[in-house]
Structures are given as C-alpha cells and as structure tokens.
C-alpha cells in the first residue's frame, strides 16, 4: 500500500495555500510535516483526507485493495478538536467510535486502548471532567479502537506532557512497525525514528501595485 501525492496543491476560500507538494509514503513509513504557522500543514492534511477538494495535482492510495479503495476509507484523522462528546463518559465515547468506525478484528477493546494511553482508571468519568492533556490522550485512544492503516495527525502532541509524548511516540512506532503509515503535522519533535520530514514554506506571492497576482 502506498500513499502518493503528486504536485499536490490546496486552497482555502479560493486562495492557494500551498502547491507543488509531492511525496510517496510506503508501508511502515512515517512522515512529519513541518513549517511556520500558516504554511498550510493543516490544509494539506485536510486535502489528503478529502475534506477539501484537491486544487491541483493528485493524491491517491495505491494497493489498498477492496478494504481501502480510497484515502478516506484508509485513514484516521486526528484534528485540533478531539471529536468526543463532553456529556458522555470516556468509555461511552470510545465505545461509540469503536462501533461506528471499527470493522476489523484488529480493533483494540476500549479498556485496553485506555490502558495504552495511560487512562486506565478514569474511563467512567464524563469527558468534560478531563484535563486538556487527558482529553488528547483519550482522542489518541480513538486511533486504537478502530484499525486504520493511515493516521493523519494534526498537532497530535498538543497539550501532552513528556511521559505521554514518549508513550505516544511508542504507539506510533508500533503502528508503523505493524505496517501502518503516519502523516503528522507538528511543531514539536515527535520522537519518531526514521521519519522523513516535509518542510512547507510560505508560497511566494508577487505584489504589483498593491494587488496580489
């Protein structure tokens, strides 16, 4: 299975944010996307996931077979928000996503996923009672309760402490070792060994007589 981006360009509100991005990601390979604020890291992830239309070039998943015909069907998207309901408990939230997203026998049970992110004892609490870092860890547990080969992570370690960062790095290594792929947009080092880096920069604009061409 390979994720291929070819001369990929994305835009927001009709204005080009990035263009000419190309990478190929094979099985077991992580890719970190770095760059200054506003360089289009999040937009790139959203274009890859298919939330935003591809402005130019192409993004494709090859060799996904019947299980994963498209990028969207093969990926987990962990955005800035955690996609959890504050009124439900952590276990209820995860059990819902496990039911809704999961289908393979590689899905972890909810309790085991919580153990893996170090939230073993607090599954019964409403999500609203959790701290920022704990919420992020619960959202990371969501990646484990339903198996997807491709993880699209947008600032995944925001709010995590050192120990949790290390634990998450271990989870990502394990995911790659099991044949997964990761595209992570980040400012912080993720502790991923052998990760390739995609640097994004501001797209050059030429200003002529006050107008943007």
């Amino acid at each position: 299975m390979r994720l291929i981006a070819d001369e990929l360009g994305g835009e927001r509100g009709g204005e080009s944010v990035f263009s000419g991005i190309g990478f190929t990601l094979g099985v077991g390979e992580p890719l970190t996307v770095t760059g200054p604020n506003g360089s289009g890291k999040s937009t790139l992830l959203r274009v890859v996931a298919g939330f935003l239309p591809v402005a130019e070039g192409r993004i494709a998943l090859e060799g996904g077979g019947e299980d994963y015909p498209t990028v969207a069907s093969a990926c987990h998207y962990l955005g800035h928000s955690n996609a959890m309901k504050t009124a439900l408990t952590v276990v209820e939230n995860l059990a819902f996503w496990r039911d809704f997203l999961g289908e393979t026998d590689r899905d972890l049970p909810v309790s085991e996923a919580l153990e893996q992110v170090g939230l073993g004892g607090i599954g019964h609490l409403p999500f609203a009672y959790l701290s920022t870092g704990q919420r992020r860890r619960a959202a990371i547990a969501k990646l484990l309760v339903a198996h997807r080969p491709l993880w699209l992570l947008d600032e995944p370690t925001a709010g995590l402490d050192k120990a949790s960062e290390a634990r998450f790095a271990g989870l990502m290594q394990a995911h790659c070792a099991a044949g997964g792929m990761i595209v992570a947009a980040t400012h912080l080092p993720l502790g991923l060994e052998g990760a390739r880096e995609l640097r994004m920069g501001f797209k050059e604009r030429t200003v002529i007589a006050g107008g943007i061409c």
Binding site: F51, T70, S73, C75, G79, A83, M84
Partner: peptide, 16 residues
C-alpha cells in the same frame, strides 16, 4: 461540527 465529530462522520462515508 464544533467538537470535530462531523469530520469523522463525513470521513467514514465509504463505510456508512
């Protein structure tokens, strides 16, 4: 949409 669930619901359009 506010808590990000909508993205995941749209994302799983191939399954559901």
């Amino acid at each position: 949409r506010e808590d990000g669930s909508l993205d995941l619901l749209v994302l799983s359009a191939d399954r559901h």
